[in-house]
């Protein structure tokens, strides 16, 4: 299994710049939104925006979109595992 020559994929600078702009926009939106007191909704929005940002970083900066599919599947599996652990932990704490 020698795969060394199969990815001469060069990602243009413009892609990274656009991703950076989107990340900065999400950052300022989350700062703006959290300055209002919306109760539990604030937490939800802030975490949702952080998740969008993470997906952008994973997809473009970390090349998951252009790399072998296996990496994307593994990352999704690890994130799903973390989500399940968080869910089960809170099932315990919320219904104690």
């Amino acid at each position: 299994m020698s795969h060394n020559d199969e990815k001469p994929h060069i990602i243009p600078y413009k892609t990274f710049l656009l991703v950076l702009l989107a990340l900065l926009a999400f950052t300022f939106i989350s700062i703006g939104v959290t300055s209002y007191n919306l109760g539990p909704l604030t937490v939800l929005i802030a975490l949702l925006l952080a998740t969008f940002k993470t997906i952008l970083v994973l997809t473009y900066f970390m090349h998951l979109k252009y790399d072998v599919k296996m990496f994307a599947i593994l990352v999704a599996a690890v994130l799903a595992l973390i989500a399940v652990v968080i869910f089960i932990t809170f099932l315990d704490y919320l219904f104690r």
Partner: peptide
Amino acid sequence: LASSATIA
């Protein structure tokens, strides 16, 4: 964020 973009 900017430093991540530049290393990429």
